[in-house]
Amino acid sequence: MRPSRRFFVGITTIAALFAVWAVLTMVTGTVSTGRFPSPLQFWESARQVLTVGYADATLFAHALHSLKLVVMGFLVAIAAGIPLGLLMGWSRRAEAFVNPVFLLIRPIPPLAWIPLAILWLGLGDAAKIMVIFFAAFVPSVINTFTGVRMIEPHIIEAARMLGTGRRRMVREVLVPAASPMIFTGLRLSLQASWTTLVAAELVGALAGLGRVLNVAQQDIYPAMVMVGMAAVGVLGWATTRLLAMIEARAMPWLPARA
């Protein structure tokens, strides 16, 4: 399908869903607005949190707070994860050392770190970053590692034949050769970052979108819950798009994907 046509079809689908939503809640009343808010209630709640604020801050402040934590946790995780993955992929000895630790940590779901993070670091930002770190670290290490192991042996042999030193081998051979897998890891890491952040904020937080969701739930305010969910969705989508744009620019040599 042509991009413009694709876009049109997408818009139509969403508009149709909106119409069904409006009809079921506002016209026929099939769905009780006490449980599932109407588009109008949704809009009112959005306006409230955007202007006056909700749970001690405006939507913008909550969103910025969550975004900041995700970006920080994600960056710290990949700054540690990619080099470790490269090292493990390149050196069997490093893999032999690190892998047992990984086998131990990997089966623990990232969310299971939340209680420990709160006990150690309280309800503030540090605990959130720790939890995001554990969630985002693993996929970036594993995919980078796999990416290095999947490099065509001939490519590495060609580099060695050309007398490539260690630094250039890493920067100009291993990283670009493994980069499709590295980016797969980054996408998974980013997703995991959002998931764990929201979960950690739900358990306890002083600000952030998870706190909006939590307070709205306690206030029995479904429209505000949905506004919070929508905000998480929009931010998650935007960061994923940004990563995809970086990915496309970072690997200009790949044949264009349709």
Binding site: E152, H154, I155, E157, A158, A159, R160, M161, L162, G163, E172, V173, P176, A177, S179, M251, W253
Partner: peptide, 20 residues
């Protein structure tokens, strides 16, 4: 004992760097 640029190889499978 190992590869080096004094012995240049043309590989049967080319082995070019796709990103360069």
């Amino acid at each position: 004992t190992g590869p080096g640029p004094d012995r240049a190889v043309v590989f049967q499978q080319f082995a070019l760097f796709p990103w360069k």
